[in-house]
Simulated scan of single mutants.
Amino acid sequence: MPLKFVLRPNEKVIINGAVIGAGDRPGSFFLYNTANFLRGREVLKEEQIDCIEKKLYFVIQLIYIFPEDAVLNLQRFASILAETREARPDCRDDLDEIERLVEARNHYRALKICRKMFKGGSEASPSAAEDAAGNPAVDPAP
């Protein structure tokens, strides 16, 4: 069963490293195979990093979007994860789960949990003005 997703007008999505944009109207798209993808509203830009949780999110995002650089980014991830554990001992369970998911190469789920840790709680998207929807193409389980 393919995954159907809708992009907002002028919204972009990264699918397996390629940036694809919608036109002036919302568009429906179907993915018929497994793919790594993030909608534009889920992408964190480096200049938006203002806390350790976003730093962790950013490095997981790099591992996910650019698998060819995974070795270097996984080293960065280990370092940033240790830093985050020190700064956020209250999030030990979430950080353990994020580590497990990254090791299992379930990066989208790890990103989703990491978003919950951002200041403001809930599941705020990388840019706080937009909401973050789930991504069943990569992660169909609830």
Rank of each mutant, 00 (worst) to 15 (best):
K55V: 04
P126S: 10
K116V: 13
R76M: 15
D90V: 14
R76C: 07
D131I: 11
Y64L: 07
R39F: 12
I80A: 06
L101C: 08
L111I: 10
C114E: 00
S122W: 01
A104Q: 09
Y57W: 05
A78P: 09
E97C: 10
P126V: 12
L111G: 05
V102P: 06
R92H: 14
R41Q: 14
E53V: 02
I98M: 06
P67N: 03
L81W: 05
F77P: 12
R105N: 07
I65N: 02
K45S: 11
V102M: 03
Y108A: 15
D90A: 15
S127M: 08
R105F: 10
L72P: 05
V59N: 02
R76F: 07
R88Y: 08
E83C: 04
R109G: 09
S125H: 06
D131K: 12
F58L: 06
L62Y: 01
E103M: 14
R39G: 02
I49A: 05
I49T: 13
Y57K: 09
E123L: 10
F66P: 08
V59D: 01
D96L: 08
E130G: 05
D93V: 08
I63C: 00
H107G: 12
F58D: 01
L44P: 07
I63E: 02
E53H: 03
I98Y: 02
Q75S: 13
A87R: 04
S122V: 12
P126A: 08
